[in-house]
């Protein structure tokens, strides 16, 4: 973030750049290091997930899980607070290591105490905040997070969040009127950084793709465009683990899926 970059550009760009500089200077903590982050998320946030910050993901458990996956795979302990119906298998498929994932399904009326105690020891906490949280409590938890360098992903609105990630325009691939099965979802994820920290960024992502992971959807693999090869799986080594084709309980799994696919691609 060098000041010399502002050689050309309009006033708006200048403002954005200055705001970025201010934001950079506000983060005065020396050890506010970045967590390992999936490249799709990092490009949306304009950098990695920051240790000691809070992120708000109001409407998608899958997105919160995807944000947790990269740190978890890199050896960070994660916790899920207040979500008794968290899809464990989907999390495992998304790349979360269950060996280092701990659940507090029902914190009861001690949400703040429990979340703070958990945040003391783990790197990433995914939590559903209660409908009303007092501003003082938000600040206390925020201070606790900064002190311990752990990241909160709040499944709901969180006043002091570093960024809010919203999912819009869900388009499911693979399901038709009466046939097919869900294969992947194409969504637009929009990131609003904290007030005055730049314009919202958005990207089109597959959440989840056929392997249950997060994937960029800008460029649709050529294979998808030919009606003959429908399986939504990129032929790249990144698409591990390769799941075996599953025995389906449906009449014709392939044929009717062509139409929605094409609609998406065009």
């Amino acid at each position: 973030m060098s000041p010399a970059v502002a050689s050309s550009g309009s006033a708006a760009e200048k403002v954005a750049e200055l705001q970025a500089r201010i934001r950079g200077m506000q983060r005065t903590r020396v050890d506010s290091h970045g967590l390992p982050t999936a490249p799709e998320i990092a490009s949306l946030l304009g950098g990695p997930l920051r240790a000691g910050s809070a992120y708000s993901v109001p409407d998608s458990v899958a997105l919160a899980t995807a944000m947790m996956a990269a740190p978890s795979a890199a050896g960070v302990w994660c916790a899920v607070v207040g979500m008794p119906s968290f899809g464990v298998e989907a999390a495992a498929a998304a790349g979360v290591d269950l060996e280092r994932l701990v659940f507090v399904p029902d914190p009861g009326d001690q949400w703040l105490t429990v979340t703070a105690a958990v945040a003391d020891v783990v790197g990433v906490v995914v939590a559903v905040p209660p409908a009303r949280v007092a501003p003082a409590e938000v600040s206390r938890l925020g201070a606790r997070l900064r002190g311990k360098g752990s990241t909160l992903i709040a499944l709901g609105d969180w006043p002091q969040s570093e960024a809010t990630l919203r999912v819009s325009g869900s388009e499911w691939v693979g399901l038709d009127a009466g046939s097919g099965h869900l294969q992947a979802r194409r969504v637009t994820v929009t990131v609003n950084a904290r007030a005055g920290a730049g314009r919202p960024r958005s990207a089109s992502l597959f959440l989840p793709d056929a392997d249950g992971r997060l994937r960029r959807a800008e460029r649709v693999p050529a294979a998808w465009q030919s009606p003959a090869s429908v399986p939504l799986r990129e032929q790249s080594p990144a698409a591990v683990p390769q799941r075996e084709p599953q025995p389906l309980q449906q009449p014709e799994p392939h044929e009717p899926q062509v139409a929605p696919l094409r609609a998406l691609v065009s």
């Binding site: 899958a62 899980t65 294969q183 992947a184 979802r185 392997d211 025995p247």
Partner: peptide, 15 residues
């Protein structure tokens, strides 16, 4: 386990 759900798994499984 015949009859398992194909495709990606749901992120919320109700208790």
């Amino acid at each position: 386990w015949p009859g398992s759900v194909p495709g990606p798994l749901p992120s919320t499984v109700f208790e």
